[in-house]
Nucleic acid binder design. Sequence first.
DNA 1: TTGTAGGCGTTATCAA
DNA 2: TTGATAACGCCTACAA
Lengths: 339, 339
Amino acid sequence: MTNNLKRITVHDVAKKAGVSTATVSRVINDNDAVSSELKSQVQKVIDELGYRPNKAAHHLRSGKVKRVGVLFADIRNPFFTSVLAGIENSLHEAGYALILGNSNEDARIENMQLQAFLDEGVAGIILSAVTNSGSPYQQVLDAGIPILAIDRIPGNLKVDSISIDNITAAKQAALHLINLGHQKIAFIGGPEHISTAHLRKKGYLEALEEHPNRKPIIELGDFRQSGGYQATKNILAAHDDISAFLVANNLMTLGALQAFNETKILIPEQIALVGFDDMPWATSLQPPLTVVAQPTYDMGKIAARLLLDRIKNPDNPIQQVILETQLIIRESCGGLRTV
Amino acid sequence: MTNNLKRITVHDVAKKAGVSTATVSRVINDNDAVSSELKSQVQKVIDELGYRPNKAAHHLRSGKVKRVGVLFADIRNPFFTSVLAGIENSLHEAGYALILGNSNEDARIENMQLQAFLDEGVAGIILSAVTNSGSPYQQVLDAGIPILAIDRIPGNLKVDSISIDNITAAKQAALHLINLGHQKIAFIGGPEHISTAHLRKKGYLEALEEHPNRKPIIELGDFRQSGGYQATKNILAAHDDISAFLVANNLMTLGALQAFNETKILIPEQIALVGFDDMPWATSLQPPLTVVAQPTYDMGKIAARLLLDRIKNPDNPIQQVILETQLIIRESCGGLRTV
DNA sequence: TTGTAGGCGTTATCAA
DNA sequence: TTGATAACGCCTACAA
């Protein structure tokens, strides 16, 4: 049942190649100066024997690991899934393994997962933070493990980060609705402690401020479908003269649609709708959804690259990358009413 | 910049507690018989020092790892995302780390990823196989690493597995459409080499066979949105008398909807639609989508548990778990026409 | 029940 | 440029 072929080690290679284990090690790690003669000779034996270095031993002795931890606040949200796919792609190309964790929007779990990453041994961590404060992450940085903050950036944390310009993104969407002639535009936002939620609300408010007589109508959800549904219901119950909705998150947009369908409200005839994130279903809905699109997959790819850069060059200056969003105008926001 | 606090090891604990490193090791690993007196004494020192065992050393010496590899064919598909969340949850509870890989429906990449898992050191692998043959996976099993096949089960592979009853699932959906009185029911399936695709087609065919005069109308897509779109277009172009569609995958269902919207075909008035997987958007669509629901999250949870069982008991009999699906009837398939 | 000591597979240091 | 050797941190015979 069990495998009784003994594991092939540097010793086996060394013996067969007639060199020392040190030389074999040097060939594996390429770097050192080994005569190209010996190098190819050893490499040949490595191939013949099908030798594969033991990573645990390598890690133990050298302290180096090609492993990155990815900790997201909600891996079920398609936004993160797409980002994750981008990360996976970059890491795989670079020969790094990806350890995945889900903090589930829970600071306690997040903390445990980070600790688990440290125990497991990672060269760096990509993190969509649950809390807005940097302090919980300091111990990780103190341990010499770099963090790359993605999407949600804790305020006082000095780390590399990648995000979108949330204020402008939301503002642009709100302005579009304003320019279509809408007077009463409701905003469904997320929890204040999440930076993206906070900033998108700010963008919405900024847009309204630029246009007189437009009062903010705001309801905050939990970034989940049910939260969007409930927030929409609440707004509809409290106001009967709203003609447009801006929803600050993908799943909440689905919740809002559910509420509109239930209430037999027609989109865009009765209410214009702009959502967040260009998800697979956006073009399958009737009418197709107008959205603020984030470059999710690319965010992931870039995030991984930034982190790998940091791992290679710990003393480089910190980079804060901000990607642009795109307002994709489809039919859910209706045509021009007044200009 | 760098951390100059030396790492705390068993030796530090041993010295401070006035015991040998062997005793410390025994306390860490709980199992052995250490007097409860000594045990609590050592534990106290461990807590005081904040000692955390080095997993690389543990792995190297003992050969044991609490790490599982998860390799999916398409991590961007929300079906897998949901399964993944279930797996993550179970593994995290059990103190296992999750290494994630994406084979992207490519057998070559799948092979590389499996090799990477072996190099990295995993106690087991959860796999949604790209190919339908078991042979590519034999080397992993030969290395003593158990595989748990999920969703797609290679034909000739003797491993634990968890899946749904794909034949019955599709058959049930097709029968529902038949019972509603539909005569021409089109089926959009997936690539034949994927077991789920193959079996769902079989279920559709079985349903038709039970009812005379119903000819199969089949188009195969690639399990992606664009494939569903194209397949729908093809069917619509070739037939003008179809009154119902059964689509065998979640993203292809979105593609079909896109095609229907574009062609101004009304659901369910002109065409009744049944899709696969109860995804977040199903209830946000107008009309809400009738679907064959798979217990995705639970599949993941159970998959992880099965694998951990296998890791603990390598010689237990093989388990093939088949979960039931549920036909959730909403409005997209229309009401009863004829019975 | 507890301690001693050797080794897991690799790499870093030092010497040749 | 190459080799001998110790050490990374832990576990496990074996001895006491």
